[in-house]
Simulated scan of single mutants.
Amino acid sequence: MQNFLKTEILSKSLELLSKYPLCDSCLGRCFARLSLGHSNEERGKAIKILLLMEIDKAIKEHKIEDLPQIKEVLYNMGEISLTLYKNYFNDEFQNRSCYICDNRINEFKENFLKKALEKIGNNKTFVLGVKLTDELKNREEKFMVENQLFYYESIKNEIKRDVGKKLANMGFIPEFDNPQVELVYDMEYDTVIVFTKSKKYLAFYNRLSRGIPISSWVSKGGESLESLLSTQVVAPYSEASEYRIIDDYPLIIENITEKQVNLQGFHITVVSKIAGKELSTIFTIKPTRRLYRVTVYSDEEIKEGIKIYDKIYDIFIEAKDFKELREKIKNYQVISIDLISTVGKSKLVADTYIKKNFS
């Protein structure tokens, strides 16, 4: 079907749209490093219009022998292909959500802008950040690698840039080196984290008690590590609050001078001040695999487990993330879960910083 296309961009776009539904922005972002000065939405819409013209021409010239095979492409283009679809097919058009953003990219931008304006206060200079959900980050990385998209741009860069432009048009000033305020949009919790001009410290923590989350906004009326420390705390990655964490997990803490902190189930080791690229790097490095100790109740003997009392066993399970862990333990009666250790660059970072500061 692709032999009627003569440009690499159109050919690659047809290949992508044969497999994935993509909104204008997410398709355009596949070629974001080409034709600078245009938005990804403009790129994606232009590609779709030109592709529709090529498809229509190929149909009219009988270069597409199996007409039904083009249906998937038209479905995956979205509403822009509806007129052409009705010209050649009588059945109902399928509306599909974008594989990358679920048709929510404009919603993300609007939410970020609204919440940023609520929190920017009297600060004039700013810098923006976006923390993707693990699911979106992994899906986007897999999409980029599997399809060899050399000109791809992350969705978080698009969100930061477009929201930053709107703030700039309102009189606020982007300042990357020494901003008065840093606004980070956390997509998982649909909230904006505010870092004012203050000292940020990298720390590593162990959570030895269950039920205490890191951040106040996910605490259901109870305590959080943030409230216990009485300062802002951000975790680049974490575990559910009912899991104990034995391994060293990173934290970014504002304005703290102690080197070792112990309070209500947390042990915290503060290692150094952190800023700029070093801070950004910490947020991008996460474990590749995690080892959990899961305590379960079982009437039957669990041969691979360690019997600790009567019908209670400890089993050790390796998983990429909580979703994989949940799938592996779905047939067990779970009593408790502990994160024991991790594998990946994040472990190397923790070991390096702690050894450097406490050897």
Rank of each mutant, 00 (worst) to 15 (best):
Q94W: 10
G276M: 07
Q94Y: 10
A168R: 12
G129Q: 03
S97W: 01
R326Q: 13
I9R: 11
I335H: 12
K124C: 06
I302F: 04
L136W: 04
Y75N: 05
K19F: 02
A275H: 12
S280C: 03
S216G: 09
E239V: 13
R290D: 00
V181L: 07
D247A: 13
E92T: 12
Y243P: 00
F143G: 03
G78I: 07
D134R: 09
K328R: 14
K199N: 12
I59E: 01
A116D: 05
S209R: 15
K303N: 12
R43N: 07
K286F: 03
F143R: 02
N206H: 13
N262Y: 10
R96Y: 01
F143H: 04
F172S: 00
K63F: 02
S336P: 03
M77P: 06
S13W: 05
D134C: 04
G265W: 11
R139A: 02
E79C: 04
M1E: 10
K328H: 06
L136V: 14
K330Y: 07
N87I: 03
H62M: 04
L67N: 08
W217T: 11
I302A: 02
A275Y: 13
F195V: 01
L279V: 09
F4K: 05
E242R: 11
V271A: 03
T83M: 08
V73T: 14
D190A: 11
F143S: 03
G28L: 04
E140V: 01
F126G: 05
G265I: 11
I282E: 08
V218M: 08
K137S: 11
I274C: 02
V127I: 14
E278S: 09
S25E: 11
Y201N: 14
F358S: 10
I47Y: 04
K166M: 13
K119L: 15
N206K: 15
E327H: 09
N157C: 06
R29Y: 03
K156H: 11
Y201W: 09
L36I: 12
T281L: 13
G37N: 05
S154F: 11
V130C: 07
E135N: 08
V181W: 00
D91M: 06
I49V: 15
I49D: 08
N76R: 04
Y185M: 09
G222P: 01
R104H: 07
I268S: 02
S241Y: 10
K156W: 02
K311M: 10
K307W: 02
I59Q: 01
P179G: 06
E8T: 14
K356I: 00
D186V: 12
R290N: 11
